[in-house]
Design a protein around this nucleic acid. Sequence first.
DNA 1: CACGTATTAGTTGTGTGCGATTTAATCGTG
DNA 2: CACGATTAAATCGCACACAACTAATACGTG
Lengths: 150, 150
Amino acid sequence: MSPAAAEPSEGSLLLDDQLCFALYAASRAVTARYRPLLDELGLTYPQYLVMLVLWEQDSISVRDLGAALQLESSTLSPLLKRLEANGLLRRERRVDDERSVALRLTEGGHRLRERAGQVPLAIGDAMGLTPEQDTLAKQLLRLITANVTD
Amino acid sequence: MSPAAAEPSEGSLLLDDQLCFALYAASRAVTARYRPLLDELGLTYPQYLVMLVLWEQDSISVRDLGAALQLESSTLSPLLKRLEANGLLRRERRVDDERSVALRLTEGGHRLRERAGQVPLAIGDAMGLTPEQDTLAKQLLRLITANVTD
DNA sequence: CACGTATTAGTTGTGTGCGATTTAATCGTG
DNA sequence: CACGATTAAATCGCACACAACTAATACGTG
């Protein structure tokens, strides 16, 4: 920090004072960094996040997937259709509750997990934070998310 | 932090270990928080960011605006057309370099600044960070952005 | 068990984001 | 000054994101 820097942070309309812009820019920059890696897997970034959830817990409902990713069904439905068209998962109506759709990985969906294993390391490396900074950043981001949500 | 928490952070494929997801979720949550406030101004969130830049520096080129926001012309061109259609700015070809387009606020565009004045306080309030946390978060996010941008 | 309410996915419409390409204008080097 | 390289915007195609709405199913209470 330059010692003589003014502190107009509160209520300023200057772009560079705004935490919200730092957040928005960082999010897009990180996604851009993922893009070439995920291209090789045939995934977009949101599709990759869906696959993370499914590798963790197969046969999840669209509803629970949306809760995990904080995404609406209007976002997930077309995305899941693309993953199904690409042969990574199947969508099946639950027999016990036909309102619900279970997402089940195909063989190809499971196999992709091995190829994805390198991705988090590569990204973590690119971010270049110390473990302490990484933990701190996650804590702050979760605090912001929690405070801002309702 | 729970003291006994394992540290599988490096190389984990668990969604909740990933800084990238915390970032993505926080960015969307903050944007969602802005939405009702910006609705009253007739702006979307990216449009609001454009207006922040223009209030700071009028008569900027599309190129420099893109550099400030880290957005491509393919994103900005349609967005700027909407702002022009809503009467907030005009786009004029530069006389000294006809490749370039200068963005100039209209009277209405300037007037909107007063109504937008409350927005940063309201958002800062909702985020609920201490000034120290706010500064720290901005530093970490800028570090990530810089590291990740080749 | 009938019927109003709630829940779950999906559809539609609008607005980003970005890669690839296009068009027009300017620059640089011989 | 000629002409290939570069630059600035815009266009196109695709994939999110989300609000508003719809359709189908399940639930709960009288």
